[in-house]
Simulated assay, not measured.
Amino acid sequence: MTSLKYGLICFSVLFFGCSSQPTVFVYAKYLDNQQREDVTRTFEQSGKYQVELNEFDFPTSVTTNTLLYSLLLRDPDTIDAAADLSASAGFPIQRTQGLTQGNNWYTKNSMALFLLPAHLGSQAPFFVQDLVHDYLADNCDVAQSLTLAKDGTFSLQFATPNHGATKESVHGTWKYRQYPFVELQSRDSPYADFYFEIEQFRGADKVSEIDYLKLQLLNGSLPEGCAFLIGTRI
């Protein structure tokens, strides 16, 4: 019985000790593999945090390295400690703010790091990762959708007049060489077949505000005025 009680006590200490560690959610969308490893290793070696990396989009207001923390953190000192660890991993924090709403982790013992590589900085108006989406055709009856994949390939789906059923598609590679232009090059084509201009604007419906990303056709075999659109609720 004594051994059993001792074992339960040890288990409880270990369990609650681990569960009391705050979780750091690292928004690593713009980090390469080495940077992700550096951040993860730095925090894990401290023995004070659990780390979870993700590739979620940044809030539109975040343009510098930012630390957002839950107001329910059990130890407020972990905020400054996390900022110091982030800096030692190569990502000094420029903004720290408590979060009261808007994320599923804000009621937990946790914080979030939004990290940007130094060579990008806050001056870059747009990142290539921001273009990776499935877009719907806008003002373009002959097309149905456009997918820009993370591996640099694209798929352009055409539509027939009856219920928008897919008739055929075009595949190839896409490139983002300079803001605000995107080019699509079909397979076996010696040059780009489509050029689009990036447009960003904010709209709203009855539910909430929406940030839109629009690819407006500049030239190519699609009808004039064709565009592809995606919206993200704020």
Rank of each mutant, 00 (worst) to 15 (best):
T160H: 10
D130G: 08
D134T: 12
F154R: 02
N139R: 10
E168T: 14
W174R: 04
P161D: 08
A165F: 09
N139W: 04
S145Q: 07
T147S: 15
G164Q: 03
K150T: 11
S145C: 04
T166W: 06
V142P: 04
N139Q: 12
H163K: 14
T173D: 11
L136Y: 08
V142I: 10
K150N: 14
T153Q: 07
F158E: 00
A137Y: 00
Q129K: 15
Y135W: 07
L131Q: 03
S169V: 01
N162T: 12
D151A: 10
Q144R: 15
S169Y: 04
Q129E: 15
T166N: 12
L131F: 02
V128E: 13
Q157A: 13
Q157R: 15
Q144A: 12
A137K: 00
H133W: 04
C140D: 00
S122L: 06
G164Y: 00
F154T: 01
T160I: 06
N162S: 13
V132Y: 00
F154Q: 01
N139P: 00
L131N: 03
L120Q: 13
A118G: 10
F158W: 05
S122I: 03
F158Q: 00
G121L: 08
A143W: 01
P161I: 00
V128N: 09
T166V: 12
D130Y: 00
T160S: 13
Q129S: 13
V132A: 03
S169N: 09
W174D: 00
E168M: 05
A124V: 12
V170E: 13
Y135V: 04
A159R: 06
H171E: 11
A124Q: 15
F127G: 06
W174C: 03
H133F: 07
P125I: 00
A165V: 10
V170D: 09
G164M: 01
L156Q: 02
S155G: 12
P117D: 02
F126K: 13
L120H: 14
S169K: 07
L146M: 02
F154W: 03
H133D: 03
S169F: 06
D151S: 11
A143K: 00
G152F: 11
T166L: 13
H171I: 07
V132C: 07
F126I: 08
H171R: 14
D151T: 05
D130S: 05
H119E: 14
S169G: 11
G121H: 11
E168G: 10
T173N: 15
T153F: 07
A137F: 03
A165I: 10
S145E: 03
Q157T: 13
N139C: 09
C140L: 09
H119L: 13
D130Q: 13
A165N: 12
S145V: 00
C140T: 01
G172H: 02
K150Q: 14
L120R: 14
H171V: 11
L156W: 02
D151K: 05
L136G: 08
F127D: 08
K167W: 01
D134S: 12
L156F: 09
H163Y: 14
H133L: 01
H133N: 15
N139G: 13
D130A: 08
A124D: 11
F158N: 03
L146W: 00
N162M: 06
S155C: 09
